[in-house]
């Protein structure tokens, strides 16, 4: 009940500033587009595909934060494990290295396997580490999550080695040509896989009994407990869902980048978290929008004319994180909530 919006005049100045920044960004994009429409559009398709990956990972952050208010630092590394597990399953166990209809089927199987594995790992982590700290001071689970992140990275080293491991993609390396614009097939596949997954997720959260219980638990854990919801199970299920999405993202990442590396999760995880913040942490649709937005921003920065270029990617991404968290901690849609007294 006791949440209020602060109506200090500072916020008007900030929203004005926000508008100015937005206008500048739009102008910049138009400038970039007009200098090289073909490159721009091609980069945009890469951005959309990257954005889809970020959205998948961001959902895991946002769901966990929504339900137990924990920034799960280890989530990015779980995604990394997903890609490593996928690569081992697909290449080393089932020996698929060439593009063929059979390989595509096995790729689908790989994805299910990685999703299941990551879901289980995430549930295990929650049960062993976070569950015991649910009522501890807030710093404790956060530090634990950082620790888990390092442990997962080292599991990655054990499975994948400390050097990047190059892999082969089973997706066709061809491109579709739409006029002057070439779109790589793999990017289309990423989007084609992600969209149904996101829809499925929305359906689970919005329409199913479990989804309703999830939302109730996120609202008020104690009340949900009193209403007969098995809160432990719901939280566990949330981790499983987030893990499954991270696993799917991992396999897609593997197919797009043809590489697995133990430290892929750290930066990508941070970017995905930025996406979650952009959309408002706890807001599922927001996470997807944020993910796509960031994917596009990153691709433009890396490849489109008049942007900073790849050596500044992190600076651009994390500046967005910092600016968002400071000025609009509730995300582009959300409202900032005040503490209860």
């Amino acid at each position: 009940m006791a949440t209020a919006e602060r109506t200090a005049p500072r916020f008007k100045v900030e929203s004005l500033l926000g508008m100015a920044v937005l206008t500048a960004a739009v102008a910049w994009i138009i400038w970039s587009f007009s200098s090289g429409p073909v490159i721009f559009t091609q980069v945009l398709t890469i951005g959309l595909s990257n954005g889809a990956l970020y959205a998948l990972i961001a959902l895991g952050y946002t769901m966990v934060y929504g339900i137990i208010e924990l920034i799960n630092f280890a989530h990015g590394d779980l995604f990394m494990l997903g890609s490593v597990i996928g690569a081992i399953f697909l290449e080393e166990w089932l020996g698929q290295t060439k593009s063929s209809p059979k390989a595509w089927l096995i790729l689908a199987l790989t994805m299910l396997f990685a999703m299941a594995a990551c879901a289980l790992i995430n549930m295990f982590i929650e049960k062993v580490a976070y569950r015991r700290l649910r009522n501890a001071p807030k710093l404790a689970p956060l530090i634990t999550a950082v620790g888990v992140s390092f442990i997962l990275q080292n599991v990655g080293i054990l499975m994948n080695g400390s050097a990047p491991h190059s892999r082969t993609s089973v997706l066709p390396s061809s491109s579709l040509e739409l006029g002057p614009i070439e779109v790589r097939v793999k990017y289309i596949v990423v989007v084609a896989v992600t969209v149904p997954l996101l829809l499925l997720m929305t359906w689970i959260v919005q329409k199913t009994r479990v989804g309703k219980a999830m939302r109730a638990t996120a609202q008020d854990r104690d009340a949900s407990l009193l209403m007969g919801i098995n809160v432990d199970r719901i939280i566990s299920f949330t981790f499983a869902l987030g893990g499954a999405l991270a696993g799917a993202a991992g396999v897609l990442f593997l197919e797009v980048n043809q590489q697995t590396r133990y430290d892929a999760g750290f930066r990508l995880g941070l970017i995905a978290f930025t996406a979650a913040v952009l959309g408002g942490v706890g807001n599922l649709v927001g996470a997807v929008v944020g993910g796509v937005l960031l994917g596009v921003i990153q691709a433009l920065n890396d490849g489109a004319p008049h942007f900073f270029g790849q050596q500044w990617t992190q600076t651009v991404m994390f500046s967005i994180l910092i600016i968002m968290v400071i000025f609009r901690p509730g995300g582009i849609f959300g409202k900032h909530q005040q503490e209860k007294v």
């Binding site: 006791a2 209020a4 602060r6 200090a8 005040q338």
Partner: peptide
């Protein structure tokens, strides 16, 4: 309960800004 007493305290002590 819920009559707004504590909210009123919060206004006085600067936690809330009244509309």
């Amino acid at each position: 309960n819920g009559a707004g007493k504590t909210t009123f305290f919060n206004v006085l002590t600067g936690l809330y800004t009244p509309s």
